[in-house]
């Protein structure tokens, strides 16, 4: 498959040619930040911001979704009809694509298939966009995420001068850009140079393999309470995260008829683990903080083979009390050093 070139000035017409056949979702400007939203006209696409405020996960795993409707009297259920028009996610940054890759493992690999996720995900095309400069809270490089490429994307755009270099990864992607001119060898070199120039800085966080040991040893460490002391117990961090996937299922009924709804939930809510008996196994902030960190860096890795943090920095960015996941890992490292 040959890589392609798109002039920046032709982005809108390219986008509009997609809208005819696909549901196009792209970053859209929204009051001082951008959000991934369905676009009616490609001129709405806004690539001025670092990355959308919320991750791309809600495209395949929405915050609320009706799983089925029910009738209490007849005891019958029916699933809502679903839009068969395929989705194109345009302009996804590498950290979000890595998030989708992690969610794919969770929802579509192994024995547990999530049909609600899969029907959306299987009917989608991903178009990535290089992120030229990491934000002040970003640390995707720590996880080895390449901001200039992604295997999971069908197409990957890298802006340079007045053009986009389009890396074509799949047949489905190739079909979308058939009519565009091929990229020259010189273009490929330019993009490669851009990538090298933007090499990642060093991180003063314990490396991943050391972290695994620290997390195992530090399960009962006092440092968790220290870290969590300022946490106010909202779930903003889990809601903007590209990989957090906990949900709750509730029934909403009006008369005989109702619906079963799946809604995002967050492990940082004190009542997240409240049992029907009234017992709550995680009453302390430290226990909840530990759960969030260990799920990302330990449990998810054990179960799915990858760490489920993509270093997008959103949780740190929006935290009302500046709980910064990089600081948390650093603090954990320091605590382990003190102990040994």
């Amino acid at each position: 498959m040959k890589d392609k070139i798109l002039l920046k000035e032709n982005l809108v017409s390219f986008g509009n040619s997609l809208i005819e056949q696909y549901r196009l979702i792209a970053p859209v400007k929204s009051n001082g930040f951008s959000l991934y939203k369905p676009v009616g006209n490609a001129s709405e696409i806004c690539l001025d911001y670092l990355r959308p405020l919320k991750s791309a996960k809600e495209i395949f795993f929405p915050q609320n979704e009706t799983l089925f409707f029910f009738n209490k009297k007849t005891q019958k259920i029916a699933e809502p009809a679903y839009d068969k028009k395929p989705t194109i996610l345009f302009g996804a940054v590498a950290c979000d694509l890595a998030g989708i890759a992690a969610q794919d493992r969770l929802f579509s690999a192994g024995a547990y298939l999530d049909s609600y996720y899969l029907k959306r995900r299987r009917n989608s095309i991903l178009i990535g966009m290089a992120c030229p400069e990491p934000g002040e809270m970003c640390f995707c490089g720590f996880f080895g995420i390449d901001r200039f490429a992604s295997d999971i994307a069908d197409l990957f755009f890298t802006p340079f001068s007045d053009k986009y270099y389009i890396k074509v990864n799949t047949e489905a992607g190739a079909r979308l850009v058939e009519s565009l001119p091929d990229a020259a060898a010189a273009d490929a070199k330019t993009v490669e140079r851009l990538r090298c120039e933007n090499a990642e800085p060093k991180w003063d966080i314990p490396p991943l393999d050391e972290l695994a040991r620290m997390l195992a040893e530090g399960f009962e460490a006092d440092v968790w309470d220290e870290i969590a002391q300022k946490c106010i117990g909202c779930a903003a961090c889990t809601f903007v995260c590209p990989t957090c996937h906990c949900f709750d299922i509730t029934d909403e009924a009006k008369g005989e008829i109702g619906r079963r709804v799946r809604t995002w939930d967050g492990c940082m809510f004190p009542k997240f683990t409240l049992h029907a008996s009234g017992h709550n196994p995680r009453t302390k902030g430290g226990q909840r903080m530990r759960q969030r960190i260990l799920h990302k860096f330990s449990y998810f890795k054990d179960n799915q083979g990858v760490v489920s943090c993509t270093g997008c920095g959103r949780c740190a960015e929006i935290c009302p009390v500046n709980v910064d996941i990089r600081e948390v890992l650093k603090q954990l490292g320091e605590a382990c050093e003190r102990k040994s």
Binding site: C234, A236, I318
Partner: peptide, 12 residues
Amino acid sequence: EKCIRCYACRNA
């Protein structure tokens, strides 16, 4: 409609 019900306002 912008609200994501994270309850950060309440908890802050």
